[in-house]
Each structure stands twice: as C-alpha cells, then as structure tokens.
C-alpha cells in the first residue's frame, strides 16, 4: 500500500470508503457510512428482489441487507463468514450493503473525479456516480441513492 493519505489536501476533497464487490473495487462517501459489521445470517423476506438478502437485527432495528454484487448485476454468490456488511444511511433510510471486503479510506480531490464514459450496454451504469483512478486502479464511486431499495423514490 502506498501513502495515499499524503495526497495534497484539496478544498473539495472527498473522503471515500473503498471496498471490493465481486472482484471489482467500489467506494462510497464516508459520510453516509454508519458502521461496518461482520457477517450475520439474514432472515430471508419472501417475495423480495433477488438482490435483497433479507433482514438482520442491528441492535433492535430490523435492517434490510442488499447484496451489492447482485444489485450491480455482477453475481449473486453465497455469502460466508468472510463477507462484511457496510451499514449506510441515505435518504433517511438505513440499509446494510453486503460486500466482499472493506479495503481503505481514501481522500480524493473533487478534481480527480471523472464522469463514467457513456457505455449504454453496461447494466450498472446507473449505480455509478463517477470514476477515479488510484494507483492505476479504477475506483467506482457508488451512487447510493440509486442502489437503495426505496419505494418512495418512484413517487418523488
């Protein structure tokens, strides 16, 4: 690992939490992350989308778990003890994202953010806000609002 923290602080710098999903690297704004939890077996909810793994008990709250790989159309694999749940809070909703592993916390200047190229056949294009490059690796900035299973979004 190189010294990413040593990057020049920018006025518009954003802190991102990066993680791996289905072999790809993604990241979310760290301000929307509430906590990171180990794997708990979710209780399946009938007739829900395939990418919803079910619900877990987060200190007395029923927390829906989104299988991020399934949601992004990468692959739905059987989750195991090695998986991690990132609890995020977006649009007054708290949801757990099931990912492979959490990697790092990065500070990326806004100027380093690139819009994603227009590839219409890419199914997960709607979930990605921007792209950025760190150490020659492409990092996808996830659009959480698009990922979340929100019924009210259609109405709004």
């Amino acid at each position: 690992m190189t010294e990413r923290g040593a990057q020049i602080a920018d006025a518009t710098e954003r802190e991102l939490l990066s993680f791996r999903v289905g072999g790809q690297e993604y990241c979310v704004d760290i301000m929307s992350v509430r906590e990171i939890r180990g794997w708990t077996r979710p209780t399946p909810v009938p007739r829900s989308e395939l990418w919803i793994r079910g619900v877990i008990n987060l200190r007395g709250t029923v927390l829906p778990i989104v299988d991020l790989a399934g949601r992004l159309g990468i692959a739905v694999e059987d989750a195991s003890e090695r998986n991690v749940i990132i609890v995020v809070h977006v649009r007054r909703q708290t949801v757990g994202l099931l990912v492979d592993a959490v990697s790092d916390i990065l500070a990326i200047p806004e100027s380093e953010m690139r819009p994603q190229p227009d590839v219409t056949s890419n199914t997960n294009e709607t979930f990605i806000k921007a792209l950025t490059i760190i150490d020659d690796r492409m990092l996808r900035v996830l659009d959480l609002e698009a990922v979340l299973p929100d019924s009210t979004r259609d109405a709004a």
Binding site: R41, V45, P46, R47, G54, V55, I56, N57, T61, P64
Partner: peptide, 27 residues
C-alpha cells in the same frame, strides 16, 4: 413488533418482524 414497512413497503403475507431470543430476525 418491529416494522418492516419502512424499508420494504408491504410484503404479502407478512405483517411485521420481530427479534427472537437468539438475536435473529423472525417475520
């Protein structure tokens, strides 16, 4: 009774959820 509605909307056949003694969520 713990609401499911907030995150899911109405799930047919399911009224709500609860948390059992082992910490697992049960519908």
């Amino acid at each position: 009774i713990k609401g499911l509605q907030e995150s899911y909307g109405h799930v047919p056949g399911i009224a709500a959820a609860t948390i059992l003694g082992d910490g697992q969520v049960a519908l």
